[in-house]
Write a protein that binds this DNA or RNA. Structure first.
Ligand SMILES: [Mn+2]
Ligand SMILES: [Mn+2]
Ligand SMILES: [Mn+2]
Ligand SMILES: [Mn+2]
Lengths: 218, 218
DNA sequence: ATATTTTTTTAGGTTAATCTAAATTTATAT
DNA sequence: ATATAAATTTAGATTAACCTAAAAAAATAT
């Protein structure tokens, strides 16, 4: 049985490695989990003994197949709970992440099976992130960062970063949500901001920071 | 902020003292939480410093008003989650307690407010236990233990113990649920078992153990 | 190639929650 | 009233997760 903390480490490693594609540095894990590198080193040894990661000192870690499976289970729970909170408990999309961070650690296979059923087997969470199925399989949409959308091109918002409430509130204020159609009117060199046309009528300017936290159809 | 463990101690003390009515012994807490008396002594000192209990060594503890408030918050969450699991996720009444033991520690006032609203402000959980309102006020029904129902008297099942899945499954098998009308036909001296008439037609015999874990209308 | 900087690990502690064994207090029995 | 038993506390360890400071390895710059 994994501890709450071990689960959070695995999830962080999974995300930082883009789904297990590459190795992850000690410092990046420390930053992501708001802890110190020394603590990370300790935990990596522990996870390595449990064969959830492959770890060679000074070389970073790779998540193992078993570790990936565990990470995906937690991510699945996190996203299903977010759907529940938004769809059924009327939470705003900026209010769910923190609560889901707690709910994702509840251990009950039956609970997650029934929750999935209750929600109607959703494929995406309120921020457009794909929900792994019970086998850990993810079916995501092709997408690019808004900042990489070329001038003159049109696209639809398919996902947003989910862990910064202020950012999500700002998106709501701007009128940006999942499904919003937009067009890149202009990209400004000096501050990397973008001029957008929202819903075909609303003209707005978004900063580099914003355009790096929104994904649109490819 | 209370730790998971502190919350469990407070809840145990609250229950063992019948809602703060009397003091509780170190050993009874240890037994209830499946831990050792030495561990309990340590924790009681901690809770005492936080003024959640009044503790005099060798004399047992009393829960404080503040401690009672915290305990009731956890009990409220526990029972609301049990309602959700049974009513919405189709859990059986014997499957919910263990999961609720985890869910009761989720910290989010908004979550519990919205869950209560979503469930339609239920007053009782699936085992007939009253759900404290947001101020910690409990409106319970007058009830007696089935074993204290006098021969010849009729009554209705209003509550059952909720922490033993095997007991709850056995109740289901016997046809005993919340709302079941029954009559005490006979009480046998030698083994303290009871003969009951269920729903006016079904004749069954229940052991002392069973009749001590079912409550009926007074 | 060597010096400097950055990253990572190790060494040695701390805290919360737990344990066993020993000491102490309280309760019970004769 | 005293001896014995039971309940409780204290002493001293252990474990998981964390920390700071020092040491070691790897990366970078000249
Ligand atoms: Mn999230
Ligand atoms: Mn999300
Ligand atoms: Mn319960
Ligand atoms: Mn219950």
């Amino acid at each position: 049985m994994l501890s709450y903390t071990e689960e959070n480490y695995l999830k962080a490693i999974y995300h930082l490695s883009s789904g297990g594609e590459h190795e992850v540095s000690t410092n990046s894990i420390a930053e992501s989990l708001q802890t110190k590198a020394a603590s990370v080193s300790d935990m990596l040894k522990k996870l390595s003994v449990k064969e959830l990661v492959e770890y060679r000192r000074y070389k970073g870690v790779n998540i193992s197949e078993e570790g990936k499976k565990e990470a995906l289970k937690i991510i699945r729970k996190h996203r299903l709970w977010e759907v529940f909170l938004v769809n059924n408990l009327k939470f705003n999309w900026d209010e769910v992440h923190e609560v889901a961070e707690q709910l994702e650690h509840i251990k009950s296979p039956l609970l997650i099976k029934r929750l999935d059923e209750f929600l109607g087997y959703p494929s995406f969470d309120p921020h457009g992130d794909p929900i792994p199925d019970e086998y850990g399989v993810i079916k995501d949409k092709a997408k690019i960062l808004l900042k990489d959308l070329e001038e003159g091109n049109e696209a639809i918002v398919v996902a947003v970063s989910d862990d910064n409430p202020a950012f999500l509130q700002y998106c709501s204020k701007l009128g940006i949500k999942i499904g919003t159609p937009l067009k890149a009117i202009d990209k400004l060199e000096f501050d990397n901001s973008m001029q957008l046309l929202l819903d075909g009528d609303q003209k707005i300017n978004v900063s580099k920071e914003v355009s790096e936290n929104i994904w649109v159809t490819d």
